[in-house]
């Protein structure tokens, strides 16, 4: 079997700050970029920490051999990773997990992203271009990221903030409901906080639209070997059991997930 997952030290070819404590890294890792799919993730080592940190792939440039990741500083591990300067090296393992299932680009899609769940939607939306709409939610204007990138991808962008400092005031689920009243897409994709995913899944069910969600759980190996990243799901036989976010996910069909 040819290797399809790689790990090594790869150069950061570009690093920018996109909002307070949120960094945008472009990493040159041709082997990883070659097989990476929208919605997959990489597992990053922070110097001095035992466990790697899972971070979604935001954009894939196979020609240049680059992937882009957008990471928010949440705790000590991400703070350490954020120290890596442009030109420095990152210890990256990937690509990992199952990404979003992409339909023909001529189909229509709505992507819903909340906060740091927005970055992984960019590669997905790019696949559909003008046939997609992106509903992006943030706490407030100062936390809004990647708006221009989504516009450049050619999709329609609806921006929401909890406090109304930018775009529509309110939650993405509200904007999604309004949108679904107008037109029904072939598929909905979502990544963000659990209550948001739950809300999106409920709306998708109500309107009878296929929906995929990207889940989070604490991880060890990232490759399906240690079974720590459990997520409760329904099996085809109707029984519930624990699937694993790094192997069966991070993307699941919404109706499989037991929220």
């Amino acid at each position: 079997m040819e290797p399809s997952v790689f790990q090594g030290s790869y150069p950061v070819v570009r690093k920018t700050a996109c909002a307070k404590q949120i960094y945008d890294f472009t990493v040159h890792c041709p082997d990883i970029a070659q097989t990476a799919q929208a919605g997959q993730f990489v597992h990053i080592k922070a110097a001095g920490f035992t466990l790697r940190r899972p971070i979604s792939i935001c954009r894939i440039d196979r020609e240049k051999g680059n992937i882009r990741i957008v990471m928010e500083v949440r705790g000590d591990g991400t703070a350490q990773i954020a120290q890596t300067p442009e030109g420095g090296m990152l210890d990256v393992m990937g690509p990992l997990g199952h990404g979003f299932q992409l339909l023909e680009p001529t189909e229509t899609a709505i992507v819903v992203g909340g906060g740091i769940g927005v970055p992984p939607m960019l590669e997905t939306v790019s696949h559909y271009g003008k046939n997609a709409a992106a509903i992006l939610g943030f706490r407030s204007a100062s936390a809004a990221i990647l708006e221009e990138d989504f516009q450049k991808a050619g999709c329609q962008v609806v921006l929401c903030t909890d406090d109304g400092t930018k775009g529509k005031k309110g939650f993405v689920t509200q904007a999604l409901k309004e949108s679904l009243e107008q037109t029904k897409p072939s598929i909905i994709y979502a990544c963000g906080p659990l209550p948001m995913l739950k809300g999106v899944a409920a709306l998708a069910k109500e309107y009878g639209i296929r929906c995929q969600v990207s889940m989070e759980e604490r991880m060890g190996c990232g490759i399906g070997a240690c079974l720590v990243c459990a997520c409760k799901t329904k099996r085809p036989d109707g029984e519930t059991g624990y699937s694993h976010v790094c192997k069966n996910g991070p993307v699941f069909n919404a109706e499989e997930v037991v929220f």
Binding site: T50, R218, G220, V228, C229, A230, Y242
Partner: peptide, 16 residues
């Protein structure tokens, strides 16, 4: 198995 979280980081180690 047990409900998640099933892993915690520790200095130079981990709990599962």
């Amino acid at each position: 198995g047990n409900p998640p979280p099933r892993i915690a980081e520790t200095p130079s180690g981990m709990l599962n």
